[in-house]
C-alpha cells in the first residue's frame, strides 16, 4: 500500500477534527484540501513509497499512552523549574550546549526524542549531527553534563524506544 493512500485517508479525518464535526461534506472538503496541500510536497513526504502496515504499530499503543503521561509529567516538572528560575530576584544560571548521544534509529523515534527533550526540564534541542547519532542540547544548567546525559538516557529515551521503535 502506498503511503499516498494512507495520507489521503487520514487528512479528511484531521480536517473533520479541525472543523469539529464529522459529516460527509466535511470529509469531502478535507479530501480536496488534503490533495491540494499534500500533492506539491509528495517528494518531501515520500508519498510514493510503499509501506506495509503491520500489527506492530497497534501493539505499541499502550506504550504510547504511557509515553504520553510521562511527557505530561515532565512538562509540568519543566514548567515549575523554569518558573522558579524566572521569579528569582537575580537570575543566576550557567547555560551551555551539551552533546547527547542517542540510541533511537528511525526518523520518528529521533523526532520524538528531540521533541521530548525540548519539553523536559532545562533542556532544548538545538541540532542533530549529520550521522543522526548525536543531539546538541542547550541546557539552562550545564554544570553537570554527564548528569544531563544520564537523565535523558534513563528517564526519557527508555519510553521513546518502547513507544516508537
Amino acid at each position: 500500500m502506498k503511503r499516498r493512500l494512507i495520507t489521503y485517508m487520514a487528512l479528511p479525518l484531521v480536517w473533520c477534527m479541525v472543523s469539529g464535526q464529522i459529516t460527509i461534506g466535511n470529509l469531502f472538503l478535507g479530501l480536496i484540501f488534503g490533495v491540494v496541500v499534500a500533492e506539491p510536497f509528495s517528494k518531501l513526504y515520500r508519498l510514493d513509497e510503499v509501506v506495509t502496515p503491520n500489527g506492530y504499530w497497534l501493539a505499541q499503543i499502550p506504550k504510547k499512552i504511557i509515553y504520553f503521561f510521562v511527557l505530561l509529567k515532565e512538562i509540568i516538572k519543566a514548567n515549575i523549574m523554569v518558573a522558579k528560575i524566572i521569579i528569582q530576584p537575580k537570575i543566576d544560571i550557567k547555560p551551555g550546549i551539551i552533546k547527547v548521544p542517542i540510541r533511537t534509529k528511525t526518523n520518528i523515534g529521533i523526532t520524538a526524542i528531540a521533541n521530548t527533550i525540548t519539553l523536559t526540564p532545562g533542556t532544548l534541542t538545538v541540532d542533530i549531527s549529520d550521522d543522526k547519532t548525536t543531539l546538541f542540547v542547550h541546557a539552562i544548567d550545564a554544570t553537570d553534563p554527564q548528569g544531563v546525559r544520564d537523565s535523558i538516557r534513563d528517564d526519557l529515551e527508555k519510553y521513546v524506544l518502547e513507544a516508537f521503535e
Binding site: I75, A78, N79, V82, A83, I85, I86, I87, I91, I93, P95, T118, L119, G122, L124, V126, H138, I140
Partner: peptide, 20 residues
C-alpha cells in the same frame, strides 16, 4: 512572558517560551 523579558539570550528565552 516575564521569562522572555528577563532571561539573558535567545537560547534561554526559548526555554521560557517553548515549555511554558
Amino acid at each position: 512572558m516575564i521569562g522572555l523579558l528577563r532571561l539573558p539570550d535567545v537560547y534561554n528565552r526559548l526555554h521560557a517560551t517553548t515549555k511554558i
